[in-house]
Write a protein that binds this DNA or RNA. Structure first.
Length: 206
DNA sequence: CGGCTGATCGTG
DNA sequence: ACGATCAGCCGA
């Protein structure tokens, strides 16, 4: 497997929509107890700062939780949702401008990553006392949602507020080239309360 | 495939 | 109280 170049600060120091689109096809890398997992990013959403009614920072809500969104582009923002799942975001723009990209789904970049993701997903299911579940079904939905992505790549609040441009264990690299016409767009998910912003086409997927 | 439901806890 | 959700279960 050839070494891929890591994404530099300049990649993340752009507006959230651009970063959300450009992250498609890139590879999210994280060190886990079972080794390095690598996931090809296939779905993202842009959250566009204090004016965005769908964003945690709407209205300038700068709190301890949302603080990483205000940090420089390339900073991770991991939060707990519904009391049991983590959601992984990467801040865009520069210090003080709270735009971010929610990573909604990845597919394993190689066989070893698939093995690790399967192991982590199964482990989590056992912890929750879920039934074993079919191997095929689990593979099909390995990391196709923000919560599942975090379980499959062992991402939790420990990984919050990390500079992914500098970190040795949590970063994003180049991937295979993605043509603009491969990028689909749609409404963001799960923000019905966001009024007109709920209809903005700020969700991107392959 | 689509709709419904219970689970579970840090944040403000 | 309330989520940027998930998995299981049901019916079509």
């Amino acid at each position: 497997m050839r070494a891929r170049k890591r994404l530099p600060r300049s990649f993340f120091a752009r507006d959230g929509i651009t970063v959300a689109k450009e992250l498609l096809g890139k590879i999210l890398v994280h060190e886990t107890p079972f080794g390095l997992v690598r996931g090809i990013i296939t779905e993202t959403e842009a959250y566009m700062g204090e004016e965005d009614k769908g964003s945690h920072t709407y209205g300038g809500k700068r709190t301890e939780r949302t603080e990483p969104m205000y940090h420089k582009g390339g900073t991770s923002y991991v939060y707990l949702i519904y009391g049991m799942y983590s959601c992984m975001n990467i801040a865009a723009m520069k210090e003080g401008i709270p735009q971010a990209v929610l990573l909604r789904s990845v597919i394993p970049a190689d066989q070893e990553s698939e093995r690790i993701m399967l192991k982590l997903r199964r482990e989590a299911a056992v912890r929750k006392g879920k039934k074993p579940g079919g191997e095929e079904l689990l593979k099909k939905h390995l990391a196709d949602g923000p919560g599942k992505l975090c379980i499959a790549m062992d991402i939790s609040r420990r990984d919050n507020d990390i500079d992914m441009v500098e970190s040795k264990s949590f970063y994003v690299t180049e991937g295979n080239k993605v043509m603009p016409e491969q990028v689909r767009e749609g409404k963001r998910i799960g923000i019905d309360y966001a009024e007109e912003a709920a209809d903005f086409l700020w969700r991107f997927y392959l």
